[in-house]
Computed example of a mutant assay.
Amino acid sequence: MFNILRMGCNTAHGNNFSVNRPKGYEWCLLLFVKSPAVFIIEGEAINTPANTLIIFDKNYPHEYKSSGAEYKNDWIHFELNASFFDQYPINLNTPLYISNHLYISDLIQKIANEFYSNNSYKEQTIEYLMRVLFVKTKEMVETNTLQPWRSKVHEELIKLRSEIYSNPQHNWSIAFMASKLHISCGHLQNIYKNTFHISCMSDVIKSRITYAKELLMESDLQVGEISNLCGYENEVHFMRQFKKLTTLTPSEYRRLNSITDK
């Protein structure tokens, strides 16, 4: 279904670099351009910022150049069935700005590592990674609203949320979380809610209740012990928040979901 012909990562060219292929290729070309560039699409010159991705369809003209500085990109020459684009629709022959460029760059590097390896399952791995690449590109294009914070702190925001869910027992506060990202408390609350559609402190509570449900199902610990392990100093407060989110008390939840006696 998916066949890479050749590819490269972090290929650099001088400030006079330019490409003009009037008939394109007989295969598709993916470019992830890590420097400002100029694309000529149907006669129109389009200036693009660093971290722009474009997928040229087969036999489509390629014309692009550096914008006066060093040009750097990742690139993949590939063949695939037309149904692939039906499953993962992305605008072809159109420069697409990628907000989380490190994620996409890392994916392409993983694909290259497989492509140049002799791993037993390299073809399957490459296909799965390419599917992720297409899905995440589509996702970023659809959700990107050109808010300046997306490209600057979005990755750190993801790391923060991962840390919250990995360590729900910590004494998370808005001030502490904001300090980790080196932004103001108000800014943190705005971008957290805009990104995850939940307030940061509501997410902390959700992470603690999620952990509590796991402990109730998988252990024989007393409710008070579980309350402490989830970061609560007050057992009554824990029980109130648990019932608010689950409609059940911790004991009722355990009785219905425990796996320790099954």
Results as ranks from 00 to 15, higher is better:
T125V: 15
C28F: 15
I90C: 02
V141I: 14
N59M: 04
V19S: 13
K122H: 06
A45Q: 09
I40W: 05
N47F: 13
S66T: 09
I41Q: 12
N91L: 08
E42Q: 07
I98F: 04
N16W: 10
Q109W: 15
P89L: 09
A50P: 04
L107C: 02
V38G: 01
T137R: 05
I40P: 01
S67Y: 01
V38W: 09
Y71V: 00
T48S: 07
S120D: 06
Y128T: 15
E44L: 11
K136Q: 10
P61H: 08
K138S: 11
T11C: 12
E114W: 05
K138R: 07
G14T: 03
I98A: 00
Y121A: 13
E142I: 12
P49F: 01
I55R: 01
L53D: 02
E44T: 15
A69W: 12
A12P: 06
N118S: 14
S117F: 05
T52K: 03
A50H: 08
F85T: 07
F134T: 05
H101P: 05
T11A: 14
V141K: 11
Y97S: 07
I111F: 02
V38T: 14
E26A: 09
I76D: 01
I76W: 00
N51M: 07
G68K: 09
F17T: 02
I40C: 05
T137P: 03
E127L: 08
L107D: 06
N93E: 07
N113T: 06
R131W: 02
S105A: 14
